[in-house]
């Protein structure tokens, strides 16, 4: 299958404030280590989910892929082209093919521009269509997103959350992208509206042959929407594979804990067992060894000192763990 995105050993550290006093005291510079060596590929036409708790680096990863951030180390390839160090016009030329849909439709649209202005600005700047074609294209975009031309002269403030998210989608589609990065696209919406937006994204993906990277903390949505999923913890991918396989039989203890922590809709299925304790450690001082070892039920001596290798233990299934769950029985098979 064709790789549309390939990320190799991506690292992104954000420096913390380093004042003159720190310099005099000769303190070490500190960093928020948001992404620590992520390697993955996104195939054309698929929907790859990225899940994890807040602060695990899933949004940072996405913003590096789309080059809203400049990676500290590692490489990002889009359609085989290295864009890691790309700048200026070159970058601007490649940007239209990857677009982002943001979580909060309230803050990602300019409140002083009408919907028409928002869309026509993009079409003009990137010279997507001839000037006289702009109204037609806007009509098409709005209809594609389940809106009508009647709303084009209104301001974002006049819309409900669901409609705003539709405008955000229309905006992303205006540049005819191949890759859409949806960063928590339904988290801010009401339950009844969530399903509308999920269906819309699903239809558009099929119709336009889009590739989607779907970032979410809602495991129910991710399980339903995505084909493959990457589970992230403290800036690293700990497990990656087909969504159904991971949800049915997670190998990494963290994936296991995440899937078990998601509350069930069945009131007879109430849990008594605590699967994961504590909270995600600070990304400034990363734990030694396996980053998950402090919260892991199955932690051994080696986990405390040695970082497990991220490797393919089945075709298409990557895990970073010294003792993946269910390993013994698989050896016996």
């Amino acid at each position: 299958m064709e790789k549309i995105v390939e990320v190799k050993n991506l690292v992104k550290w954000f420096p913390l404030k380093y004042g003159i006093a720190d310099k005099i005291m000769q303190k070490k510079r500190k960093y928020v280590k948001a992404v620590n060596g992520v390697s993955l590929a996104v195939f054309k036409g698929e929907n790859l989910g990225v899940v994890g708790e807040s602060g695990c680096g899933k949004s940072t990863l996405a913003r590096n892929i789309i080059r809203l951030y400049e990676p500290t180390d590692g490489q990002v390839f889009i359609n085989g082209v290295d864009i890691t160090k790309m700048k200026g016009r070159k970058l601007r030329n490649i940007r239209p093919m990857m677009q982002m849909i943001f979580q909060d439709p309230y803050s990602s649209l300019n409140p002083r521009m009408t919907v028409y202005e928002v869309l026509s600005e993009i079409l003009t700047v990137h010279q997507m269509v001839e000037k006289q074609e702009i109204p037609n294209r806007i009509k098409e975009l709005l209809e594609m997103s389940g809106l009508s031309m009647e709303i084009a002269d209104r301001f974002p403030g006049e819309f409900s959350g669901g409609q705003r998210q539709r405008i955000g989608i229309a905006r992303a589609l205006a540049l005819e992208p191949e890759l859409i990065i949806a960063d928590e696209p339904v988290s801010a919406l009401d339950v009844s509206i969530q399903a509308q937006i999920i269906n819309l994204l699903d239809d558009l993906q099929k119709k336009l042959g889009l590739t989607v990277i779907f970032i979410s903390h809602d495991l129910g949505v991710v399980r339903y929407v995505t084909d493959r999923v990457a589970v992230m913890y403290l800036g690293s991918v700990v497990e990656l594979g087909e969504t159904e396989k991971i949800f049915n039989k997670p190998y990494h203890p963290y994936s296991y804990a995440l899937t078990k922590a998601a509350p069930s809709l069945d009131p007879t299925d109430r849990k008594r067992e605590q699967i994961i304790e504590g909270e995600i450690p600070s990304p400034i001082n990363l734990p030694s060894g396996c980053k998950f070892h402090k919260r892991c039920k199955w932690c051994q001596e080696i986990c405390k000192t040695e970082d497990p290798v991220y490797q393919e233990i089945e075709t298409g299934r990557f895990v970073a763990c010294h003792f993946p769950l269910g390993q013994e029985e698989r050896k016996g098979e």
Partner: peptide, 24 residues
């Protein structure tokens, strides 16, 4: 019923979600 049916947890991967149309 519509609320329950609009949740993705209730659906298999190939079943379509049934959203509640319109807005509150």
């Amino acid at each position: 019923n519509a609320l329950i049916q609009s949740l993705p947890n209730q659906k298999g991967a190939n079943e379509r979600l049934e959203p509640i149309h319109g807005a509150p």
